[in-house]
Simulated scan of single mutants.
Amino acid sequence: MSVTWPTTVPGRVVQLLLGLIVTSAGIWLTIRADLGVASWEVLHIALAQRLGIGIGTASIAIGSLLVAIVAALGLFPGIGTILNVLVIGTCLNLLLATPVLASMGTASVAERLGVLVVGIAVFAIGCAIYVGAHLGSGPRDGLMLAIHLRLPLGVGGARVLSEGIGLVIGWSLGGPAGVGTLLFVVAAGPMVALAFRFLGLRPLAETRPVPRAP
């Protein structure tokens, strides 16, 4: 598949917004499947239920808190970080307010599993699109990087720890951890990597070597 992606900053902002909207749709599908959700969504849903607010609103609150924590640790947010918090939370509230797939929780396990798998795939495509815009990491990715820089952990270990924080807190508050959470942990990473290859995007911006002085 050959795709030409924008290189100017305005075009990359549009790409970023498209990716965030697609990511939101993927998260929405995993919530509708009612089989368990991604680690941080477990916390968002638990918080929403406890406070009587929208899941998207809880996502914005937790995302904003993480941005503040990561900034205090020395990693300041970019435009992509701020838009990640606002766009995904807003889109989730709008999607969950619609009746589409609202009765999926009463469907058969096979149907719900199908919706969950599609949701993870859509999430992965959205992640590749918005990360490929190279305009700043999401707040949870920022937490992973902060942990990696502050503790003697590799990126993989930092990712596990950051995801574990959201999952443990969310589960302790009654969030919906389940088989979908496990599937998300196992499948999301490889699916995002596949999406990068399929869409012809790079997770990191290309850097040109600095020419040596004569």
Rank of each mutant, 00 (worst) to 15 (best):
Pro10Cys: 11
Pro10Lys: 08
Pro10Phe: 13
Pro10Arg: 07
Arg12Cys: 07
Leu17Trp: 06
Leu18Val: 15
Leu18Ala: 15
Gly19Pro: 11
Leu20Gln: 08
Leu20Trp: 06
Thr23Asn: 14
Leu29Ile: 04
Arg32Gln: 14
Ala33Val: 13
Asp34Glu: 15
Asp34Pro: 03
Leu35Ser: 05
Gly36Lys: 03
Leu43Tyr: 01
Leu47Phe: 14
Leu51Thr: 14
Leu51Trp: 15
Gly54Ser: 05
Gly54Ala: 13
Ala58Glu: 07
Ala58Cys: 08
Ala61Cys: 05
Ala61Trp: 09
Ala61Gly: 13
Ser64Tyr: 01
Leu65Ala: 15
Ala68Trp: 12
Val70Pro: 04
Ala71Ile: 02
Ala71Glu: 04
Ala72Val: 09
Gly74Met: 07
Pro77Ile: 11
Pro77Phe: 06
Ile79Val: 15
Gly80Gln: 12
Leu83Val: 04
Asn84Phe: 07
Asn84Pro: 08
Val87Tyr: 08
Val87Asp: 05
Gly89Gln: 05
Cys91Gly: 04
Asn93Phe: 07
Asn93Pro: 02
Asn93Thr: 05
Asn93Gly: 08
Leu95Phe: 15
Leu95Trp: 10
Thr98Glu: 01
Thr98Cys: 02
Val100Asn: 00
Ala102Met: 00
Ala102Lys: 11
Thr106Asp: 14
Ala107Arg: 15
Val109His: 11
Arg112Cys: 00
Arg112Val: 03
Arg112Phe: 05
Gly114Ile: 05
Gly114Val: 09
Val115Asn: 04
Val117Pro: 00
Val118Glu: 00
Val122Trp: 04
Ala124Gly: 06
Cys127Glu: 10
Ala128Met: 09
Ala128Asp: 11
Val131Glu: 00
Gly132Asn: 08
Gly136Asn: 03
Gly136His: 04
Ser137Trp: 09
Pro139Met: 07
Asp141Leu: 10
Gly142Pro: 03
Met144Gly: 01
Ala146Cys: 06
Ile147Asp: 03
Arg150Met: 02
Pro152Ser: 04
Leu153Gly: 03
Val155Asp: 02
Gly156Val: 03
Gly156Thr: 03
Arg159Gln: 10
Val160Met: 03
Ser162Gln: 06
Glu163His: 05
Gly166Lys: 10
Gly166Phe: 10
Val168Phe: 08
Ile169Ala: 13
Ile169Cys: 05
Ile169Pro: 00
Gly170Cys: 03
Trp171Asp: 03
Gly174His: 12
Gly174Trp: 13
Pro176Gln: 06
Ala177Met: 15
Val179Arg: 02
Val179Gly: 13
Gly180His: 01
Leu182Ala: 15
Leu183Thr: 04
Val185Asp: 05
Val186Cys: 01
Val186Ile: 15
Arg197Asp: 08
Arg197Gln: 10
Leu199Val: 12
Leu201Asn: 05
Thr207Ile: 13
Thr207Asn: 01
Arg208Leu: 15
Pro209Asp: 10
Arg212Glu: 14
